[in-house]
Simulated scan of single mutants.
Amino acid sequence: MPEHTDTHIGERLRDIRKRRGMTQRDLSTAAGVSLSLVRKLEQGEYGDTRMETARRLAYALRVPTGRLLRRDADDADPVTVDRWAPVRAALLAPPTDQLDDEPTTTGVATALDAAEPLVVAADLAGLAAVLPALLRDADALTEDGPRTRAVQVRVLQLAGWLLTQTRQYDAAAAALERALDTASDRLDGAATVNTHCWLLLRMGRLTEARELAARWADDTEPRMSRATAGELAGWGWLLLRTAGAAVRDNRPGEAADALRLARSAAVAVGREDVAGVDNLRTFGPVTVAQHRVEHASVTDRPDHVLKLAAHMPQGRTTGSNRARHLLDVANAHATMRQYGDAIDVLQRVRGEQPDWLPQQRYARDIMGRIIGRRRTLTPEMRDLADAIGVPA
């Protein structure tokens, strides 16, 4: 799984274990982790605990995963921080006076549409280059009305999504808060909350993500007989966020119910497309199927991951969603010691999303496990490890 919680969970782990009357060996056996890991966690020797490990321990202790976690501090590396400095500066700059060449709503909307292929391809470098101007121009719009606000919301949502992708969490939260404040209709609000819930998930704030997504899903549930594709997509994504937080927080019943409703929304949409809005809101049967695979990965069922992945419905999601799904597949192969297959999948992700892949700690975890199991590495494996950022 991609999530990490860079926090010392040892004190909470020790207290809950003792209240359960369990020894460290009892806990290690029940959770399927090594005794030495439990000891090191309780002693505070590990400062970077994977969400997968935290979920296993919480499951064995019969508590929500959130009880063990504080926050994910896995912030962006210095190179990423430097690359995205102009984006943060444009986002956080105080309101400016009228620009020399006053932007128009139509002009900003056209520029935003032109950036959509970069979103589809998850071209982070390209988006980092165009986003500062988009943010400045959107903020300087003097026209008023729903269309102008919708364009401003789309720009801020894109900024929040990209900053979350690159683990710049404080700036992402600022962008999404502004987007929600600017939103003039419930679809824009739902799309913003969807990304905000994803941000909370990446930070390990499972309870907040689950409660926020569930509340908005309840408030935006459409009448199925009259719902537009956009309404179904907005509701479906909130259900997926509810399910994603619940499955990580050891609430399988709630996760299953939310995922079932999301599948109903996807069937009603009928295909992987939402006409008239940006690619970040794309939703349909493929998106839901990918999240079913993710749930199987979260709950440590690699055989089920591969079975579901082999029967995916036809259609393409956004590049980042597809790449994230492929990492689940690669992880399943690696878990089952099918290392050649895992490498093949990672190479496919690298070919499709070369700029996105190095940002993923999930990929580094997978590659690190493969390297740790092999005595020698082929030149191809060393090259892939370098691309992902794993010392080989």
Results as ranks from 00 to 15, higher is better:
9 I>Q: 03
13 L>Q: 00
18 K>A: 12
22 M>H: 02
28 S>L: 06
28 S>C: 07
31 A>F: 08
33 V>W: 00
36 S>M: 05
37 L>W: 05
39 R>I: 12
42 E>M: 08
42 E>Q: 10
43 Q>H: 13
44 G>M: 09
46 Y>N: 09
50 R>Y: 02
51 M>C: 12
57 L>S: 04
59 Y>I: 09
75 D>C: 10
76 A>N: 06
79 V>Y: 06
80 T>D: 09
84 W>I: 11
85 A>C: 09
87 V>Q: 03
95 P>I: 15
100 D>T: 07
102 E>G: 02
114 A>F: 04
115 A>F: 02
119 V>Q: 07
121 A>S: 09
123 D>F: 05
126 G>D: 00
126 G>N: 04
138 A>N: 02
138 A>K: 00
141 L>I: 11
145 G>N: 07
162 L>Y: 00
163 L>S: 02
163 L>G: 03
166 T>R: 14
167 R>H: 08
167 R>V: 08
173 A>T: 07
175 A>L: 03
182 T>E: 15
188 D>H: 03
192 T>H: 00
195 T>I: 13
198 W>A: 02
199 L>M: 13
200 L>P: 02
204 G>V: 07
204 G>K: 05
213 A>L: 13
217 A>R: 03
222 P>W: 13
222 P>S: 09
226 R>W: 09
236 G>A: 03
249 D>W: 06
256 A>V: 11
256 A>F: 13
261 L>H: 15
263 R>G: 11
272 E>R: 11
273 D>F: 10
274 V>P: 01
275 A>P: 14
279 N>Q: 15
289 A>I: 07
293 V>H: 04
294 E>W: 08
294 E>H: 10
298 V>P: 05
299 T>D: 08
302 P>H: 06
306 L>I: 15
311 H>Q: 14
317 T>I: 12
318 T>I: 13
321 N>D: 09
322 R>A: 07
326 L>S: 09
331 N>Y: 03
338 Q>K: 15
342 A>R: 15
343 I>V: 15
344 D>R: 15
348 R>H: 15
349 V>H: 10
350 R>Y: 14
354 P>I: 12
357 L>R: 01
358 P>N: 13
362 Y>I: 09
367 M>I: 10
367 M>F: 00
368 G>K: 12
373 R>T: 10
373 R>M: 09
374 R>T: 12
376 T>E: 12
382 R>I: 13
382 R>L: 12
383 D>C: 01
388 I>A: 04
